[in-house]
Amino acid sequence: MIVHQATSFRSAAWAGRAKLVVRCSGNGASSGAFQAGQKVKVVSSIKIYHAPKHPEGIDLNGMEGTLIKDVTHYKGKILSANFPFEVEFHLPSEGKPAKFKAHLGEDEIQAL
Rank of each mutant, 00 (worst) to 15 (best):
residue 1 M to W: 06
residue 2 I to G: 04
residue 3 V to P: 05
residue 4 H to D: 08
residue 5 Q to K: 15
residue 5 Q to P: 05
residue 5 Q to W: 10
residue 6 A to C: 07
residue 6 A to Q: 09
residue 7 T to I: 02
residue 11 S to E: 03
residue 14 W to K: 10
residue 15 A to Y: 04
residue 15 A to H: 02
residue 15 A to T: 08
residue 16 G to R: 11
residue 17 R to E: 15
residue 17 R to K: 15
residue 17 R to D: 15
residue 17 R to L: 12
residue 18 A to H: 14
residue 21 V to G: 04
residue 22 V to T: 14
residue 23 R to K: 13
residue 24 C to T: 14
residue 25 S to Y: 08
residue 25 S to L: 10
residue 26 G to Y: 04
residue 26 G to T: 01
residue 27 N to E: 07
residue 27 N to Q: 01
residue 27 N to W: 00
residue 28 G to I: 03
residue 31 S to P: 05
residue 32 G to S: 03
residue 33 A to V: 10
residue 36 A to I: 09
residue 36 A to M: 05
residue 37 G to R: 00
residue 37 G to E: 04
residue 38 Q to K: 04
residue 40 V to I: 15
residue 41 K to P: 07
residue 42 V to C: 07
residue 44 S to P: 02
residue 45 S to Q: 09
residue 47 K to D: 09
residue 48 I to W: 03
residue 48 I to V: 14
residue 48 I to E: 03
residue 49 Y to H: 13
residue 51 A to M: 00
residue 51 A to D: 03
residue 52 P to D: 01
residue 53 K to R: 14
residue 53 K to M: 06
residue 54 H to N: 14
residue 55 P to Y: 01
residue 56 E to Q: 13
residue 56 E to A: 11
residue 57 G to R: 00
residue 57 G to Y: 00
residue 58 I to N: 03
residue 59 D to W: 09
residue 60 L to C: 02
residue 61 N to F: 10
residue 61 N to Q: 12
residue 61 N to R: 14
residue 63 M to R: 15
residue 65 G to M: 00
residue 65 G to W: 05
residue 66 T to P: 03
residue 66 T to G: 01
residue 67 L to N: 07
residue 69 K to F: 02
residue 70 D to M: 12
residue 73 H to K: 15
residue 74 Y to V: 12
residue 75 K to D: 10
residue 76 G to M: 12
residue 76 G to Y: 07
residue 76 G to W: 06
residue 77 K to C: 02
residue 81 A to N: 15
residue 81 A to W: 11
residue 82 N to Q: 11
residue 82 N to V: 01
residue 83 F to H: 14
residue 83 F to P: 03
residue 87 V to Q: 08
residue 90 H to L: 11
residue 90 H to D: 11
residue 90 H to Y: 12
residue 90 H to E: 14
residue 91 L to Y: 08
residue 92 P to T: 13
residue 94 E to L: 14
residue 94 E to I: 13
residue 96 K to L: 07
residue 97 P to R: 13
residue 99 K to G: 09
residue 100 F to N: 09
residue 100 F to E: 02
residue 102 A to M: 05
residue 105 G to T: 13
residue 105 G to F: 00
residue 106 E to P: 13
residue 106 E to L: 10
residue 107 D to S: 14
residue 107 D to P: 00
residue 108 E to M: 01
residue 111 A to E: 05
residue 112 L to A: 04
residue 112 L to D: 02
